[in-house]
Design a protein around this nucleic acid. Structure first.
Lengths: 331, 331
DNA sequence: ATGAAAGCGCTAACAC
DNA sequence: GTGTTAGCGCTTTCAT
C-alpha cells in the first residue's frame, strides 16, 4: 500500500483515463462511453476506492445532510434519555434519509449557548434542518439565517412547520371523558415554555368551559416524576376528581402510579387519558387510552419537504390527533 | 448584500490583512499580533462571518464528527421508535460531543444493504464511529476498514468495546429471585442473533444450573409485544411459575401485562425482574425491579475514547450491571 | 509577525 | 466523448 486512501486521481491513472472521465463514470453522469465506464469501475473495485464526501461536498457546493436540532432545557442528557419523542422523530427521518442517501446530523444545543450554536448550525446546513424542539424565538432566529427549515413544534407563523392539532386533541380528550360520564376532570399540564404544552392546556381549558366543568389544573414537566407529583397533589387537594387529562404519556404513567398509590384504581375510580401514544402508553398498567400524536408521520413529511427544496414561508402541514382507546378510561 | 455568505477572503479584505492572518486569528492560532487579531475579529462580527466547515475539513484533513451506526433488522423504523436504548446512547454521547465541539452523524443501516453502507461510512469517518447495535461479522468488517471504532455491544475480540456484564447481570437477577424464595423461575429471552440477548440467556442458564432449578424459557424479540406473548405462553404452559426473568424492560412491561391478564398479580403471585433500567422500567405498574445497564455511562466512555485517539485493538472497558430494586419482585 | 502561494479531493466548465 | 483546467473555502508551509 503506497497510500492510505486512493483518490480519484489513482482511479483515473489505473483506468488510463482522465480525472473528469473517472468522475463521470463514478457518478453515473452522462458523457462517458461504456468501455471507459467499465474500466473505471474496474479500477474502483481494484483499489477499493471510496469517494471523499468532504471534497465532493466542497467542490459541488452541495452536501446531502439534514440537521436535526433540539434545544434542551436543564440537563439535556436526562431529557433526551427519558423522552420517547426524540427517537420517534429520528425513527421517522432515518428511512427517508437512507432512501435519499443523505446524512443525519444531530445537534443537542443547551439553552444557555443556544444562540451562537444555532447560528453556526444555520451557516452550515445543506439540505436543511428539522427543528425538533425549540422555542419560537430561536426558531425565528434560525429561520432568518436558513430558509431550508421546518419545525416540528408550533412556532412563529413564518417558519414552515408540521402542525399537529394539539388544541383539538386536548379538547377531544376532555370531551371523550365527558361523554363517558366524567364530570370532575382535572388536568396535568406540561412546561409553561413548551409550545405543545401550551396548546394542550388551551384545548383543556376550552373544553372545560364549553362543557361547563370546573377547571382543576396542576403543572408538570413532561417527565414521569412530574406527572406523579402533580397527580398526587391533585388527588390530595381534590379527592373527588374522577378523571385526569394528562398532557403526555410519560406524565400519565406517573399519574397512574400516583392514583394507584392513593389506594384508588385506574380506571374504576379515576380515569386517566394521556397524550402522544408513545411507547410509554403501552408500558403502563392498564395500558393508556391516549391521544395519538403522529410524530413519525410528521418527521417523514418534514424530511420529505426538505428533500424537495426550500419550503414556502409559513408552510403548514396539518396532522390530526386521534383518540386511541385502551384501558385507562372507564367505559 | 453583495454575497450570500462572506468568506474568509472577505474578512481578510475588510480587516486589511491576508487570508493567512485572518485564518490564524479566527482559529486562535499562534503567529498573529494582538492588533491584527482584533481587526480580524471586528471584521468577523461586522460581516457575520461563519467558517465553512466543509472547506475547513478538506483543507485541514481533519473533521470533528463521530458516526453512530445502528444496523436494523426488519422494519428499522419500528425498532428505532420503540426501543429506549438508542436515545440512551445518543443522550450519553451528545453532551461530551457538544463539549468537544464535534458533530454526531447518525446512520441507521438496513440489514440488507449493510455491507456497502458500512464500507462507505468507514471511508468517511473522522473522529471515529460508535457501533451502537451490530453483529460481530459487520463489526469486524467495519473495524478492518476503520480503526477508530468502539462497539457498544459484544463483538469479535479485536474490536474495541464497552463491555457490560450481561452474563453476570442475568445471573445476579436469577440469584436475587432465588434468595427471595422463588423456585420456579422462567425466562423470556431476546433475539437469538443479538449478542446481548445471548449473554443474558447464558447468565440465566448458568444460574438455573448452579441453583439446581429447572429451566423454563420462551423466546421474545426485545419488544413489548414479544414479551407479552412469551409470558402468556409461559403462564399457560407452566401455571406454577412464581417468577420471571425477562431479558429487557420493554418485554418485561409486556410480561407484567400478561401476568395481570391471566388474573395473577405482580409481585404477589408472580415476580418479574427486568433488564436495562430504561424508561420503560418506571412506566409499568408496579415499577420494575430490574438490572441496570449503564448505557449512558457506556456511551460517554465510548465517545471519550474516540476523542482521545485510536483505541487499542481489543480494548475493553467493563461496566457492572447492578440490581435496582423497585416493586415487581415479592420481597 | 505577516503574506504569497500551494494544495486538500473533487466537480464542472470549457475546449478539443 | 474525452481531457484540461479552474476553482469550492479553507489551512498551512514557506518566504519575507
Amino acid at each position: 500500500m503506497s497510500r492510505l486512501k486512493p483518490t480519484i486521481e489513482d482511479v483515473a491513472r489505473v483506468a488510463g483515463v482522465s480525472r473528469a472521465t473517472a468522475s463521470r463514470a463514478i457518478n453515473n453522469a452522462p458523457g462517458a462511453s461504456e468501455p471507459l465506464r467499465a474500466r473505471v469501475h474496474a479500477a474502483v473495485a481494484k483499489l477499493g476506492y471510496q469517494p471523499n464526501e468532504t471534497a465532493r461536498a466542497l467542490a459541488s457546493g452541495r452536501q446531502r445532510a439534514v440537521d436535526v436540532i433540539v434545544v434542551t432545557y436543564g440537563p439535556g442528557i436526562r431529557w433526551l434519555r427519558a423522552h420517547p419523542y426524540f427517537s420517534r422523530v429520528l425513527a421517522g427521518m432515518m428511512p427517508v434519509l437512507e432512501g435519499a442517501n443523505a446524512q443525519l446530523r444531530l445537534h443537542a444545543v443547551g439553552h444557555a449557548a443556544a444562540t451562537e450554536a444555532i447560528d453556526e448550525i444555520a451557516a452550515n446546513t445543506t439540505l436543511g434542518a428539522v427543528l425538533a424542539d425549540i422555542t419560537p424565538a430561536l426558531a425565528n432566529r434560525f429561520y432568518s439565517r436558513c430558509r431550508r427549515t421546518v419545525s416540528m413544534v408550533p412556532t412563529a407563523s413564518s417558519v414552515p412547520a408540521m402542525q399537529a392539532d394539539n388544541i383539538g386533541g386536548a379538547y377531544a380528550a376532555v370531551n371523550h371523558l365527558h361523554q363517558l360520564g366524567h364530570r370532575r376532570i382535572a388536568a396535568v399540564h406540561g412546561p409553561a415554555l413548551n409550545p405543545c404544552a401550551v396548546d394542550r392546556r388551551t384545548g383543556y381549558l376550552r373544553a372545560v368551559r364549553k362543557l361547563g366543568l370546573t377547571e382543576v389544573s396542576a403543572d408538570g414537566d413532561f417527565r414521569r416524576e412530574g406527572g406523579y407529583h402533580a397527580a398526587k397533589t391533585l388527588i390530595e387537594q381534590h379527592p373527588d376528581i374522577d378523571a385526569m387529562f394528562v398532557a403526555c404519556d410519560l406524565m400519565a404513567a406517573g399519574a397512574v402510579q400516583a392514583v394507584t398509590a392513593s389506594g384508588r384504581r385506574v380506571p374504576d375510580d379515576v380515569s386517566v387519558i394521556g397524550f402522544d401514544d408513545s411507547i410509554a402508553a403501552v408500558c403502563t398498567n392498564p395500558p393508556l387510552t391516549t391521544m395519538r400524536l403522529p410524530v413519525e408521520d410528521m418527521a417523514v413529511a418534514a424530511t420529505r419537504l426538505l428533500l424537495e427544496g426550500t419550503p414556502a414561508p409559513g408552510h403548514r402541514q396539518r396532522f390530526p390527533v386521534d383518540l386511541v382507546v385502551r384501558d385507562s378510561v372507564r367505559p
